[in-house]
Design a binder for these strands. Structure first.
Lengths: 135, 135
DNA sequence: CTGGATCCTCTATGATACTG
DNA sequence: CAGTATCATAGAGGATCCAG
């Protein structure tokens, strides 16, 4: 039973019964960061192999310099990404997943695979909803 | 090989080579919606069992009326959630996961379980980062 | 090459009042 | 009970310029 059902919602109710701040919710702590606009994209690329800063910019052409820096920094801060600076001139910086990043992405990736397989069904559901009286 | 590696990043590069709009990215289509502030919480509760509107409000006390309505509506629009109105007086509305919602959550849930197991490590990483010169 | 600093815009979210 | 409508705000994200 514990193997199958997530303890999350039970803990959630317990937390709320105690009046705990939901900002300390384990799920939100992790998911809110990973669900940002660019984090999924960068994680995918880093899961494939380490990348230079400039490589990431080139592979994600519509990301702003500010957001790639900030997103990578947030991912580094949470322990998912390792940032290594090579003291060349000019300097080169390589980003890679940490062990924790790899571990996390093994779980996150399943949602990505679901999205790959089912995004058309989602789009269809949206169009159907919008075409109905509910839209 | 195809079993293990996600085709996402390969497709991503192909899309970008064609100059496609990244808003049509399969992963972003799905993930951006599910990573919102309240969607994970509501999905967890609905994955457990169907809930009335008022039940959800009670179980998530710090959500505003506006956002619970909007989040549930977004999830319904994307085909994850079913909304059934019982014509009682006053009306009662029950929300539940659709088959697609159950399917999606089976994948999403693994990230939740990872978060449950590792959120302390994430918090520790944050504190270490903030305590270092990088913070 | 890899950022930091600044200013600006837009979207997500919240607060409040009203309704079948 | 289960919303809708309106107004207000905070934070995410973008554009641009500057620097080691």
């Amino acid at each position: 039973m514990d193997q199958i059902s997530s303890p999350t919602s039970a803990r959630l109710r317990a937390m709320q019964a105690e009046g705990m701040n939901l900002d300390s919710c384990p799920v939100r702590t992790v998911v809110s960061r990973l669900g940002s606009k660019w984090a999924p994209l960068l994680l995918q690329l880093l899961a494939e192999r380490p990348h230079r800063f400039s490589e990431l910019r080139r592979l994600v052409p519509d990301i702003s310099q500010r957001m790639i820096t900030q997103t990578l920094r947030d991912l580094e801060r949470d322990g998912y990404v390792n940032r290594s600076v090579l003291p060349t001139k000019p300097p080169s910086v390589t980003y890679s997943l940490t062990d924790m990043g790899v571990s996390m992405f093994e779980s996150y990736r399943l949602l990505f695979e679901w999205a790959e397989a089912n995004h058309q069904a989602v789009r269809a559901a949206r169009e159907a909803f919008d075409a109905s009286d509910k839209g």
